[in-house]
Write a protein that binds this DNA or RNA. Structure first.
Length: 1042
RNA sequence: GCCUGAGUGGUGGAAUUGGUAGACACGUUGGACUUAAAAUCCAAUGAGCAUUGCGCUCGUGCGGGUUCAAGUCCCGCCUCAGGUACCA
């Protein structure tokens, strides 16, 4: 009995708490380091082993940085608003705050058990009024700001108003909705409401009627990143498009800066790429097509294209079904068809549209536009492959060079003109023979008037120049990114600090914040379909103006929490300037990549806005980011025997064995009827059934037999399984006899207990189905059959077909989930092995950024390692045996090699190899029987980031009275690592044959000689010529012979 | 379809710049200690061949290539995972 983890861990957790060991002071003279985890949503299920993975990694890094003298900010908090608590409230009436509070308590308990070095004094909760006051405050700032493209930043709306008053909006370059030009006088003549409406088109937080993702099941609107494949991310409910008046954030104003910022952060490439795709920048031109009949729509049709070079090949146009011109331009003859089509298209759900990507639909409007370069009339179609939300909702179709346009043209027999050819010869092909479009981004223009002979790149430039000259178009950059829909028709979220006066929204004054979430009688929409907040009594301002009833979405509170941690108790401002100047931004951020298109974009946007306001001093919030991989579950399976199939299988095997099989048809079919066996000579059908089915099916068989001359014997499955020989005898008897009809002996029917077959029993898959079994009853794939019987009442009298006396389970790697019975919660493991072992093991599993399956069986290895390390310090009787004797060369080499390795592994976030290095070190020190302070003291510090309780205890036992947490990290000394000789692997023609120890500083020529002279070399040299010798010092010798 | 990333023993994984493939650990097998079990310790453990010893051959998803030397670099595929999807 040596290392008592339970006692030690409790002791040090208490010490840290009492001494506030990990409190990060705003001590501005020390170098800072900010390590952050993505804060969790506290769900009711608590933590499973996957959650702490990233926290352990960041904790190791944070502790390592403290050892290097950094003032480390390593906070934790809770993303406390969320749908599950609200859904629970709807079902049970329990206030979400109560549920959330309970869950947070459990999370805290679990987190504390693992020994994280969080500064809990800085905890934030997004649902805490003291916190969301600043979420609301930021919203007001967004509301009061507009984006000036000239200065490329957000500016106060008050300044914009001044400009309107002085010069109107003509000179304003803003990221805004489409607005008409007005003069200063016109502005002044507008009434208050008109002015407010105009300003709404400019605000960064604005109210507008837009197409939103409406999820009827959740009763709320969702942002684009909350919708996955047409279903809600939470719950997987269908989502439909709906026009609604909603708050949005003008994140599109920041699209370019969000893209550019990616260049200067150290994030995984895949994540940056995901954000780039999400932002979706494309360069091209916007131009307008005039209608052939100008009177119908004098403004023409504006389109965006990335390929203005192909304009000569634009043979038709397509409008989205929602496009406002559709109704206007459709000719009377086409009206009926087009109306029917647009109605149909608008009512299709997102999901339908997605699953039917390949089907081509559309209608001709009857109208024509004029191709501005060719002057030819091109027909205007309406089709749902053009999206109203992207570009202008209208396109010029170039079927020869765009696959979708091509498919459309083929389907509706529209003309296809090739305008780009592969080579300079301008090779012409006949597009009518093509199977697909030629989507080339390189090539030479043909059939294109003044563009002929130019490369694609040159032609794009030339075409834009021409359009600008003709004043019908201009070069333009378009983004896929949409403004973020910010309203939720939900209770459990931040209330908007907004009230309405004559239908127009106004912000509350800042001294009225926080606007607290009111009590409601039910967490459901009102009878008239208004959000739950409409149920609150007196939900209005002091003056009696009604307050906004929507609440903010989940990402509101998480968008700037990292800033609040810098100064979490400040009730005068978001955070103080000094605190922000000092902590600046997050140096290391660890979390899952599921937030790539959500939180990680929103918070970058939010931060950039605060940067523009002069509040945040860094314009990128997260300097380095690591995505920790997911820990997948390792499910175990038992194989439940299908009694009928099994009996049938046994009987067939027996028949084959008795060589009766050739007389019998297995799985006999007569029309649509199927039978287990048929003996054609004797016209006997053999059917095997379970007890329940015997009764049910007997009349059915009798019916069948009546119409044929066949006989049928019904055999209870249990008979075969329990007494095969008797059954065979019975069948043989019936075969020889001449009984007619259905032969069946009721007297013998018995019940069979549930039966399970071990994994490697031959043909198991033929007669059994896998069933998830709780992984806690399985050890090393062996099922604890007694525990299994107790698991569920229906298995109480289960029986097993074993192999070598054991029941072996199958396994599969899947998502960790309750329903798969493969959830591993950390509490049990901590109880059994301790937090330090759990920490080491989670790191030991594999690279931090990789997904990996959880399997408890390896945990013994790290547990043994800690025990083995303990024995370097203590005797069998737990007496300290550390000596002050001077360490030998070998011991020093082990230590310094380990210091070097551990340092470099932590710095490159390779925590799994770090754990291996500790194991190697302890194995080697054990072999050397090393108990020397000179070695063990630095080793203790080295281990502290990984196994802090263990290290603290050893540190104290070594005679120290202060915590180990801020002791200098050991440095390695090259001089102990120097080797006099190196064992050269000697290869012949690239194959390693033997090793030869040679002095490190031996010159190449001498190494060659020594190798050729070596005894082991002779058999490889025999009868061969040495053609070349490659010597890489301290690496390898390769002899080329031939 | 497009964009990322990954494929190495029975398992998790290591090999950092092209230089001894399989570190470390689990599991398995054998042994020691023990009345017994647990714990601990020792040995073996990629596959195949040969086992009288030396050993030999193959081997990092598949097929080619570059190189004295390829898990690592290049070309072409296959499979899996994640993201995204009429984005003009």
């Amino acid at each position: 009995m040596a290392y008592n983890h339970q006692e030690i861990e409790k002791k040090w957790q208490q010490y840290w708490r009492e001494h506030k060991t990990f409190k990060a002071e705003n001590k501005f003279d020390l170098p800072k380091y900010y390590v952050l985890d993505m804060f969790p949503y506290p769900s009711g299920a608590g933590l499973h082993v996957g959650h702490p993975l990233g926290y352990i990694a960041s904790d190791i890094y944070a502790r390592y940085k403290r050892h290097q003298g950094f003032n480390v900010l390593h906070p934790m908090g809770y993303d406390a608003y969320g749908l599950p608590a609200e859904q629970y409230a709807i079902q049970t009436g329990t206030h979400p705050e109560i549920t959330t509070g309970k869950n947070i308590k459990r999370y805290r308990q679990q987190l504390d058990q693992i020994g994280f070095s969080f500064d809990w004094d800085r905890e934030v909760r997004t649902s805490d009024p003291a916190y969301y006051k600043w979420t609301q405050w930021t919203f007001i700032q967004l509301f009061k700001s507009w984006y000036n493209k000239k200065t490329d930043k957000a500016e106060p709306i008050a300044d914009l108003i001044k400009q309107f008053e002085n010069t109107g909006n003509a000179g304003v370059e803003a990221a805004c909705d489409e607005v008409e030009i007005f003069t200063a006088d016109q502005w002044k003549q507008m009434d208050e409401k008109q002015q407010q409406e105009m300003l709404m088109h400019y605000r960064l937080a604005y109210l507008s009627k837009t197409m939103v993702n409406w999820c009827p099941a959740l009763g709320t609107v969702l942002a684009n990143d909350e919708v996955k494949e047409g279903l809600s991310e939470r719950g997987g409910h269908p989502v439909e498009r709906k026009l609604m008046k909603q708050w949005s954030l003008r994140i599109t104003a920041y699209a370019q800066r969000l893209l550019d910022g990616l260049e200067k952060v150290e994030w995984p490439d895949s994540l940056k790429e995901m954000q780039r795709n999400w932002i979706g920048r494309s360069e091209g031109a916007s131009l307008s097509f005039q209608l052939a009949d100008k009177d119908v729509a004098p403004e023409g049709i504006e389109v965006f294209t990335t390929r203005p070079d192909t304009l000569f090949g634009a043979t038709f146009m397509v409008l989205a079904p929602e496009h406002e011109l559709v109704e206007k331009i459709t000719t009377p003859e086409q009206k009926e068809e087009v109306e029917a089509y647009t109605l149909w298209a608008k009512n299709r759900s997102e999901r339908e549209r997605m699953t039917e990507v390949k089907t081509v639909t559309g209608k001709f409007t009857g109208a024509y536009a004029v191709n501005p370069l060719t002057g030819k009339n091109v027909p205007i179609w309406v089709a749902d492959y053009v999206l109203s939300g992207y570009g202008t909702g209208a396109i010029m179709a170039v079927p020869a060079h765009d696959s979708r346009d091509f498919a459309f043209a083929r389907h509706f027999e529209l003309p296809i003109i090739q305008v780009v050819a592969a080579d300079a010869e301008g090779q012409r092909e006949d597009p009518s023979q093509w199977d697909e479009s030629y989507d080339a981004k390189e090539g030479v223009l043909i059939n294109s008037g003044f563009l002929n002979g130019l490369s694609v790149k040159q032609a794009i430039r030339a075409a834009i120049d021409k359009l600008e000259e003709m004043k019908i178009g201009t070069g333009k950059i378009n983004y896929r990114l949409r403004d973020a829909i910010f309203s939720r028709q939900r209770y459990w979220g931040e209330p908007f600090p907004i009230f309405y006066k004559e239908g127009m929204p106004y912000p509350l004054s800042e001294d009225e914040l926080p606007l607290k979430l009111p009590e409601v009688d039910k967490y459901l929409p009102t009878e008239t379909g208004e959000p739950p907040l409409a149920r609150a009594k007196n939900w209005k301002t002091k003056e009696g103006y009604p307050l906004e009833t929507n609440t903010m979405p989940g990402f509101a509170g998480s968008s700037a929490y990292y800033l609040r941690y810098m100064d979490p108790h400040n009730n005068k401002e978001y955070f103080s300037k000094e605190a922000n100047q000092y902590w600046r931004n997050v140096d290391l951020y660890i979390g899952g990549d599921e937030h790539a298109a959500g939180h990680l974009i929103y918070s970058r946007f939010w931060n950039k806005f605060l940067f523009d306001l002069g509040l945040a001093c860094e314009d990128e919030p997260f300097q380095k980011l690591i995505n920790q991989g997911k820990i997948q579950g390792r499910s175990s399976f038992v194989y439940r025997v299908n009694i009928e199939k099994y009996a049938e299988y046994l009987l067939w095997e027996k028949m084959k064995h008795l060589e009766n099989a050739k007389n019998v048809v297995h799985q006999y079919k007569d029309g649509r009827r199927k039978f287990d066996f048929y003996h054609p000579d004797k016209e006997l059908i053999i059917e095997i059934k379970r007890r329940e089915n015997l009764e049910k099916l007997k009349p059915y068989y009798e019916d069948y037999i009546k119409t044929t001359n066949k006989r049928l014997i019904l055999i209870p499955a249990a008979d075969i399984i329990e007494n095969m020989d008797l059954t065979i005898a019975e069948i043989t008897q019936v075969l020889e006899a001449t009984d007619k009809g259905v032969i069946f002996n009721w007297g013998k029917v018995r019940d069979l207990k549930p039966l399970f077959v071990s994994k490697n029993i031959p043909d198991r898959e033929k007669f059994s189905t896998p069933l998830h079994v709780d992984i806690n009853m399985v050890d090393n794939d062996v099922l604890d059959t007694e525990a299994f019987k107790k698991w569920l009442p229906e298995f109480a009298d289960a029986q097993f077909i074993l192999e070598e006396g054991k029941y072996i389970c199958g396994h599969e790697v899947e998502k960790m989930s309750k329903s798969k019975h493969n959830v591993q919660n950390p509490d049990d493991l901590i109880e059994k092995y301790g937090a330090d072992t759990l920490r080491l093991y989670e790191m030991f599993l594999g690279p931090i950024e990789q997904d990996k399956p959880w399997d408890t069986k390896g945990i013994e290895g790290v547990s043994r390692f800690l025990k083995k390390m303990w024995r370097l310090y203590f005797t069998e009787d737990n007496v300290l045996q550390v000596t002050d004797e001077e360490a030998g060369e070998a011991e020093r080499k082990v230590l310094h090699k380990t210091i070097k390795k551990i340092r470099s592994d932590i710095e490159r976030f390779s925590f799994n190899t770090g754990v291996s290095a500790f194991m190697i070190c302890v194995n080697e020190l054990s072999d050397l029987k090393c108990h020397k302070r000179e070695i063990l003291k630095p080793l203790t510090i080295l281990l502290e980031p990984y196994a802090p309780h263990f290290a603290e205890e050893l540190w104290q036992k070594l005679g120290h009275t202060e915590s180990i947490s801020r002791v200098d990290f050991p440095e390695y000394n090259e001089k102990y690592l120097k080797e006099d000789s190196f064992a050269y692997p000697v290869s012949f023609n690239g194959k390693m044959r033997f090793k030869l120890a040679l002095p490190v500083n031996m010159p190449k020529e001498e190494i060659e000689k020594a190798v050729l002279a070596a005894e082991e070399a002779q058999r490889w040299l025999e009868g061969k010529t040495v053609r070349k010798i490659i010597v890489v010092p301290k690496r390898i010798v390769n002899v080329v012979v031939g």
